[in-house]
């Protein structure tokens, strides 16, 4: 069973994402901020990380950079409620740090599940 780490400071969103992903048969580990997320990533065998960008303690961008330095191949989906100037601002940074898949909140559930499935599909190469 693929294990997904959900990082979001909003408990309601974590719960919603957990239920959504568990229904699809994924295992879920939760973290409420970047510090907890790094600890959870080290403690578990994580196949995919879905992280919010704006969080207390450790911001999503910082978390992405640290995870990438821990494991260059880590699979990450970044989700953001948006910056003040442009909803894409933070996600653009996430992409610069190697996050290929990004979503703006509110996220379309179907699209998210498709990307998750695609990223966790066995590599052809």
């Amino acid at each position: 069973m693929n294990k997904i780490l959900i990082v979001d400071d909003d408990q309601q969103i974590r719960d919603m994402l957990r239920i959504t992903l568990e229904r699809e048969g994924y295992g879920v580990v939760e973290a409420g901020d970047g510090v907890q997320a790094l600890a959870a990533y080290r403690a578990n065998s994580i196949d995919l990380v879905i992280t919010d960008i704006v969080m207390p303690e450790k911001e999503g961008i910082e978390l992405i950079m640290e995870m990438k330095s821990l494991d260059a191949d880590v699979k990450i989906i970044a989700i953001s409620g948006g910056g003040r100037i442009n909803p894409e601002d933070y996600l653009k940074w996430a992409r610069r740090f190697g996050v290929a898949n990004t979503f703006s909140k509110p996220v379309d559930r179907q699209k998210l599940l498709e990307v998750v499935a695609q990223m966790l599909a066995p590599q052809v190469a």
Partner: peptide
């Protein structure tokens, strides 16, 4: 308000 509002909307729509 966009950031917080989008979070709230996401929870609402997700549930």
């Amino acid at each position: 308000i966009a950031h917080d509002f989008n979070n709230i909307l996401y929870a609402l729509l997700g549930y």
